[in-house]
C-alpha cells in the first residue's frame, strides 16, 4: 500500500516491523536522507575514520510547536547535535536519527520534518547514516520526538574545553542573543504575539572550522542553548574556576527580542539560542578571531562582550549600560514572566 502523504497519519502499524513500517522507512526516511551508507539498509552503518581524535555527542529534541519561524524540530535536531560536535572544534561527519512518533501525526508533517532534516544535514555537510522508528499510542507522545547522535573528527592541535578559560582571556559571542527562544515563544498556543523574527537555528560547523584553522588554541567553545548566555558562562566560570566581567553595551540583541523580553518580563541573557557560540581565547588572539568570525555568514554580528577575571566565587558580572554592575546568575527553574 502506498503512503498517503497528503491525508494519511502515523498509525501503530508504522512501528510494527511489518510492511507498513518498511514502506514508511523507504518512502520518507531513506528517500530524504539518501546516502550510500543508509542505502545498504543494514541495521548499522560501517565506515572508516581517519586517525585522530573523535568527538561524539547525543541530544533529544522535544520542542513544541514542531514548526516555528525559522525552523522546525527536524532542522533543530540536526543543528543541535552538529553544533555540540563543533564545540569540540570537531568537523561533524555522521549522524544517527531516532524517531518516536505519536499515533495520529499527519504524515505530511513527518515528511516535512524529515525533508527539513535532510536539508539541514546537507548544508552542514553531515550524512544521516542510521536510524530507528518507534510509534507510541496517541496521547503518549507529543507528535514527534527525535534523538540524534553525531560523531566528528577533531583536527590535531585543537582541544577547546570548558576548564580552559584563564584570567584576561577575551569572551566573544558569534551574534545576536535570544532569537530562537523568542521566535518559539511567539507561536506557543497560550502566547501568540507577532514578531518580525526568525529562530537562529543553524549549523556552526563551518564557522568553527575557519575559527580553529585561524586560531587553533581557542580555549573554550560552547553554544549557549537552554539557559542562554547566562547559564553557559556560569558553567564555564565554574569549570575554569574564574569569574567573568561582561559589558552590557557590547552584547548584541535584536530590537524585537529586547521588546518581547521587556513586555514578558524575561531577561534575554537567559533565553535560548540554537545557532550561536561563545568563544574564549587569549587576549592577543581576540582581534584576529573576531575578524575571522565576522567574515563568516554565521558570525556576521560577532562581538567581544567581556573578559575573564580572577574570582574565587566564580561570579559572572555585567557592567550595565546604565553605569552600575550586577550579577548574571543562572536561571532558577523555568523562566516565568513577572506579574508587574
Amino acid at each position: 500500500m502506498k503512503l498517503d502523504l497528503e491525508n494519511g497519519v502515523v498509525e501503530m502499524a508504522h512501528g510494527g516491523g511489518g510492511r507498513a513500517m518498511a514502506r514508511l522507512v523507504e518512502d520518507i526516511f531513506v528517500r530524504s536522507f539518501d546516502n550510500p551508507l543508509l542505502a545498504q539498509r543494514n541495521d548499522q552503518a560501517c565506515f572508516d575514520l581517519s586517525a585522530g581524535r573523535v568527538a561524539m555527542t547525543t541530544d533529544s529534541y522535544v520542542i513544541q510547536p514542531l514548526f516555528f519561524p525559522g525552523g522546525d524540530i527536524g532542522s533543530l535536531a540536526v543543528h543541535g547535535t552538529v553544533n555540540d560536535l563543533a564545540m569540540a572544534g570537531a568537523r561533524p561527519l555522521y549522524l544517527s536519527a531516532g524517531f518516536i512518533l505519536e499515533e495520529g501525526l499527519p504524515l505530511a508533517d513527518l515528511a516535512r520534518i524529515v525533508a527539513s532534516m535532510a536539508r539541514a544535514a546537507a548544508e552542514a555537510g553531515v550524512a544521516i547514516v542510521t536510524g530507528d522508528t518507534k510509534v507510541v499510542e496517541k496521547g503518549k507522545g507529543d507528535g514527534v520526538f527525535i534523538n540524534t547522535t553525531g560523531i566528528g573528527l577533531v583536527p590535531s592541535g585543537v582541544a577547546p574545553s570548558g576548564e580552559k578559560a584563564r584570567p584576561n582571556d577575551a569572551i566573544l559571542i558569534s551574534g545576536t542573543l535570544g532569537d530562537h527562544g523568542v521566535a518559539v515563544m511567539s507561536c506557543r498556543e497560550n502566547l501568540s504575539f507577532e514578531v518580525d523574527l526568525l529562530s537562529d537555528s543553524q549549523s556552526l560547523g563551518g564557522l568553527v572550522s575557519v575559527m580553529v584553522e585561524a586560531v587553533p588554541d581557542i580555549h573554550v567553545l560552547r553554544d549557549p542553548t537552554r539557559g542562554g548566555l547566562a547559564a553557559t558562562l556560569n558553567e564555564i566560570a565554574r569549570q575554569s574556576k574564574v569569574g567573568m566581567a561582561l559589558q552590557e553595551a557590547a552584547i548584541p540583541i535584536r530590537g524585537p527580542v529586547r521588546a518581547a523580553c521587556e513586555f514578558l518580563g524575561l531577561d534575554p541573557l537567559n533565553v535560548a539560542n540554537e545557532g550561536k557560540l561563545i568563544a574564549i581565547c587569549a587576549e592577543g588572539d581576540a582581534e584576529r578571531l573576531l575578524s575571522i568570525m565576522r567574515a563568516h555568514p554565521a558570525g556576521r554580528d560577532a562581538a567581544l562582550i567581556g573578559r575573564v577575571v580572577e574570582d574565587a566565587d566564580c561570579f559572572v558580572t555585567l557592567k550595565t549600560s546604565f553605569g552600575g554592575t550586577r550579577m548574571v546568575d543562572w536561571l532558577m527553574g523555568e523562566q516565568l514572566p513577572r506579574i508587574c
Partner: peptide, 26 residues
C-alpha cells in the same frame, strides 16, 4: 528589581541607603 537590575546602588553616594519594601505581591 530596577535598582538591582541596573546596579543603581553603584551610582549613589555611600550616605544614601535604599530599603527594599514589601511591594511584591507574590
Amino acid at each position: 528589581h530596577a535598582i538591582f537590575r541596573y546596579g543603581i546602588q553603584d551610582l549613589l553616594p555611600k550616605s544614601v541607603r535604599m530599603i527594599h519594601g514589601p511591594g511584591c505581591p507574590v
